[in-house]
Computed example of a mutant assay.
Amino acid sequence: MRVVRVFWGLCLVIALFLGGSEAVAGQLAERLASFPHWHKLVVQVAQGDLVYPDWMAGSWNVTSTLVDAVAPLAPEIVSPGFESNRQTLQQPISFPVRFEEKKLFQSRSFTPTTIQSGVVADRAFNGLSLAKAYLGDAVIAVKVDPQSPNRQITLLKGDRQLVSIVSGRATETPGENQFITTEVFQQFFRTQDSRPYFNEVESTTAYHYFPQSQPTITADQVTAVYLSPQDPDYFAAASRPVALYRYRLEFTSTEDRGSRSSSEL
C-alpha cells in the first residue's frame, strides 16, 4: 500500500498526455500566481495530442524537485501519502524524457480530416521513465492506448494497475519562449483483492525556454489532487484540492542542439 500512496501523492510530475485548447488570455499564468489558493478549473474536453513549441523537440534529462507541499483542508481531510511525500521536499530526482515531431490527424464533425506536423511527447517512454524514477522496480511497464493518446496504463508488480485518462486541458502562449499547459486526469488504481481507488489530478506547468543556457528549459509545475465522487469526503471538499504539490523542473539537453538546428535548416 505504501507504493500506492507514494504514486498518488507524487502523481504525474510532467504533463505527458496531450492535446489542447487555448485558454482565456492569462488565466493559467494567474492560476500559478495564486498558489496555494486553488479551486477546480473548468477546461475543454481533451481531444488529440497537445502540440508543444518546436523548442521542446529532442531528448532531455529532467531534474524535478518538490519545493512545496500543501494540504489545504488539513487536518480534517488529508490525501493518502501526503505526509510521506513531504519527506521528499528539496530532494531532486532525475530522469530522461523525449519529445518528437509527428504527423497529427485532426477530424471534427462535418469537416474533412486534416494532417499537420507537430512536436508531441513520447508518452510511453516518458511515462515509464517517470514512474521508474519514483517507484523503481515496482514498475513493470507503461502502455498508451493506440486508439487514444489520452489513456495510459501503468502496470505494477503484484497485479496492480494505475489507469490515467486525460479528460480536459488548456494551453497559453504568453511569449515566443514561454508555454503553459493545464491537464486534468481521471485516475484509478486497481488490484485483484481490493476495490479501486479513484481521484482527479490537475497538472499546470509553465515552461520557459533559454536557448543559450543550461538548463535550456525550466518549468514551474503545480499538481493538485481532488477527491472523486466515490470518496466519503467528496462533498466536504467540494471544488477544493486535498493536496497541492509544487515542483521546479530543469531540462538539460542530451543532444548537440547546434547540430540539431543546422540539420533542420
Rank of each mutant, 00 (worst) to 15 (best):
V3W: 06
V3H: 01
W8L: 11
G9L: 05
L10A: 02
F17N: 02
L18I: 01
G19S: 03
G20M: 02
G20W: 06
A23P: 03
G26H: 04
L28E: 07
S34F: 02
H37C: 06
K40R: 15
A46S: 15
Q47S: 14
D54E: 15
D54G: 08
W55C: 11
G58K: 14
T65V: 11
V67I: 15
A69P: 00
A71L: 07
P80R: 13
Q87A: 10
I93N: 04
S94Y: 12
P96E: 12
F99D: 08
E101T: 10
K102E: 10
S109F: 05
T111F: 10
I115Q: 04
Q116D: 06
D122S: 12
L128M: 11
L130K: 00
K132C: 03
G136I: 13
D145K: 01
P149H: 09
R151E: 04
K157C: 02
Q161S: 03
V163N: 00
G168N: 13
G168Q: 14
R169S: 14
P174C: 04
Q178E: 15
F179S: 03
I180Q: 01
T182S: 14
R190K: 09
D193P: 00
S194G: 04
P196G: 08
T205N: 11
T205M: 13
P211D: 15
T218S: 08
A219G: 07
D220V: 01
S228I: 04
P229W: 04
P229K: 07
D231W: 05
P232G: 10
Y234I: 01
S239D: 15
Y247T: 05
Y247K: 07
L249K: 04
F251D: 10
T252I: 05
S263V: 03
